[in-house]
Each structure stands twice: as C-alpha cells, then as structure tokens.
C-alpha cells in the first residue's frame, strides 16, 4: 500500500464526486456519506459516461448517460452485465488517502 493524501474530504461535496488523474486513467472519488469515500474508475463500461457526474445514492452511483447503477463496494453494475474497477481509499482525520500502487504509481511522492 502506498497511501497518497489527495486533499480534504470537504473538497468533495456530500453525495458528490471529484476526479483524480492517474496513470491508469481518471479515477472518481465518490463521497457517499459525511466521512465515507469510494474510489472507482470514472468511465462507465456501457458508453463511456463520466460516472463522477452521476447521482450518488447509498453506496451507489448512477451513470448520467443511460442510468446504469454501480455498487461502489464491488464495482458491479446492478442489473446489467458490467463492472468498473475500484481502488482502495480511506479517510483519516478528514483527509482522503488513495492507494498509489493500485492506480499505477511506482513509489511514494
């Protein structure tokens, strides 16, 4: 694990999302609750919709293009045949920490 501090949780609106550019592509950070953040690929496998622009509800996100719904715990599309990649992320003392290895970073900054 290589935890990278991405910023304050307050930088992501509640039930909103922000993007992080990474070597493996755009990763979306979804803030599902006051102190709960998930990280997953931003790209919907259906038609490439930007998931960070979707509506976030429970621990799920709905793609803004055609309403595919993804479980952020597993990355599985609900009721559809599809999957997005998820990445380890945690919140500590109000800071969002993402696993750098998982998103293709070789070493700590």
């Amino acid at each position: 694990m290589n935890w990278i501090d991405l910023g304050s949780i307050e930088d992501v609106p509640l039930r909103g999302a922000r993007l992080v550019k990474t070597p493996v592509g755009c990763v979306a950070l979804f803030r599902t609750d006051e102190a709960e953040v998930f990280a997953a690929s931003n790209r919907c496998p259906h038609k490439g919709g930007p998931l960070s622009e979707g509506i976030i509800h429970g621990q799920k996100v709905t793609c803004p293009l055609h309403n595919w719904v993804f479980d952020l715990n597993t990355g599985a599309a609900l009721g559809e045949d599809g999957q997005i990649e998820t990445f380890p992320v945690r919140v500590e003392a109000g800071r969002i920490l993402l696993d750098g290895h998982a998103v293709g970073k070789r070493s700590a900054a």
Binding site: I4, L6, G7, D11, R18, K21, T22, P23, C26, L29
Partner: peptide, 13 residues
C-alpha cells in the same frame, strides 16, 4: 466550482 480534478497523479508518475 470544483470542476477541476482534485489531484493529478500523472505528472509525478
């Protein structure tokens, strides 16, 4: 508005 990426990890990479 927070439309820009929160972080860019590609530059460091």
């Amino acid at each position: 508005p927070k439309f820009a990426p929160l972080a860019d990890l590609t530059l460091e990479a």
